[in-house]
């Protein structure tokens, strides 16, 4: 008497996931020249005191290198303040020759920093987003999701918040050359 196997009943279900978007890779840009005479944007959200200090330091360095820093406070993302932020970012991106946005040291602030760096790249401006190490992957993911996978990411130590001002100044000094390198700018 031979054995027979009854096939297991099967069901067909639909998968709930969205198909990945088509691969898009917007270009990134570099200065490819000296910093002198250029307007360099520095964008912050007003939240992270460590980044504010670094922005302060870098303004001085940039002036020493013959560039003109232009600082942007990009805070609110919703309501009237959000509307102002979007206009301010667009206007700032149009005025500067290149820039850095930051600081990515939380989830939403990384997303927002990437988004504002993308605003620069959309205007064909060399752009860098500054994030702490812990949020590097998130920044790169968000840049890809926004269609700008080659956005340049300046990775700073984590955490920065809570470090003494002296240590932050040392970090500002140590990472300034890397910032210029990512921009493709020479001194």
């Amino acid at each position: 008497m031979g054995s027979s196997t009854t096939p297991r009943p099967r069901i067909r279900v639909r998968l709930p996931v969205a198909r990945p978007p088509a691969d898009v890779g917007a270009p990134s840009f570099t200065v490819d020249g000296p910093l002198r005479g250029r307007t360099v944007g520095l964008r912050h959200e007003g939240s992270w005191r460590s980044w504010l200090l670094i922005v302060d330091e870098w303004q001085r360095y940039l002036r020493d290198d013959g560039a003109e820093p232009e600082v942007l406070l990009a805070k609110g993302r919703v309501g009237d303040e959000g509307e102002r932020t979007r206009k301010d970012v667009a206007s700032w991106a149009g005025r500067v020759d290149c820039g850095v946005t930051g600081l990515g040291t939380c989830g939403s602030c990384t997303s927002n920093s990437v988004s504002d760096a993308v605003a620069l790249e959309r205007l064909r401006r060399p752009a860098v987003v500054a994030v702490c190490k812990e949020f590097e992957t998130h920044a790169r993911n968000m840049a890809s999701f926004l269609g700008h996978p080659s956005l340049k990411v300046l990775v700073l130590p984590y955490p920065l918040e809570g470090l003494p001002a002296g240590e932050l100044r040392d970090i500002a000094s140590a990472y300034y050359p890397r910032f210029l390198e990512l921009l493709g700018a020479t001194r």
Binding site: R8, P9, I11, V13, R14, L15
Partner: peptide, 26 residues
Amino acid sequence: ELTAEVLEVDDDGGMSLYEASLHGGW
């Protein structure tokens, strides 16, 4: 006409479906 991807699993009271959801991350 539905367009989403189709998956076939054993009709075993939901266990295979459940495991597929865990394995597939959905």
